[in-house]
Nucleic acid binder design. Structure first.
Ligand SMILES: [Zn+2]
Ligand SMILES: [Zn+2]
Ligand SMILES: [Zn+2]
Ligand SMILES: [Zn+2]
Lengths: 131, 131
DNA sequence: ATGCACCTTGTAGCCACTACAAGGTCAAGC
DNA sequence: GCTTGACCTTGTAGTGGCTACAAGGTGCAT
């Protein structure tokens, strides 16, 4: 498969695939006579793994780790588990932070009664003025 | 005030203040005899405004807009309002996306029964294997 | 032969900082 | 008066995870 086809099959853009090769998360594939990258099913599977992990928000270092672990069939999956749990924790903290933002934004917006800027409760909340 | 003091007063790091000057969201202050930046209360207020807006997740373009609007006292605050509402929408979409991640991660982790990697439901979910 | 989709490389840009490196300034303590 | 140390200056490069060119090569249909 050339890069465009593997891109369609995996949902990872050709440019991103080349980027993954550059940073070493994907090994350089063999080349055709005309110097086009030539991928097999193993590379496609690896890309799908990467994409699913990215969709779950795992970082590139996490994914490298997960890929390495995924090849050691006989080992315990405790590390996989703790990596996933740590990541879940991060996601939960990010959600909590965004909920704080959301609540403050909502409150701020609710107070605004569409007056002039000098009376605006949104600007008031941000500026140092009174309060 | 020198940069360190204004950094302490506003909660914006000195390096970040210099960065803000470079990108033009803060105008260059006057200098002391020894070429140190010399800030007054107006600059500190602007920095606090920026910091509060950043804490609410507003982007730099948003903040530029908010700062400009905040100076036009007599104008209607409709634009401020719609900017804040648009931003709230973005935050809500981000939360929703993270909740999808969280739920999938939770389900994945719950299924794992701490076996070997080859039996691990976390790796299974990511890899192409069966399923 | 011409067009067009596809591929190649390399470089720069995105966002909002953050982290140096290499040097200048100033007050306190000895 | 000399050193120490906190503070300041400039400029440049790095962060993550791509994304967007630019300038050119290849392959196949018409
Ligand atoms: Zn993670
Ligand atoms: Zn308002
Ligand atoms: Zn916004
Ligand atoms: Zn497991």
């Amino acid at each position: 498969m050339r890069i465009g086809e593997v891109a369609r099959k995996t949902g990872v853009k050709a440019e991103t695939i080349r980027f993954y090769e550059r940073v070493g998360i994907l090994t350089a594939p063999s080349r055709t006579r005309s110097n086009y990258r030539d991928y097999g099913p193993a590379e496609a599977a690896r890309l799908i793994f990467i994409r699913r992990a990215r969709d779950l928000g795992f970082s590139m270092p996490d994914i490298r780790e997960l890929l390495e672990l995924s090849e050691e069939d006989d080992r315990s999956c405790a590390e996989v588990d703790s990596l996933a749990r740590a990541h879940l924790g991060q996601v939960e903290r990010k959600i909590a932070a965004l909920q704080v933002m959301r609540d403050e934004l909502s409150r701020m917006i609710a107070k605004c009664e569409q007056d002039t800027i000098s009376e605006c409760r949104i600007i008031d909340t941000l500026a140092v003025r009174d309060r």
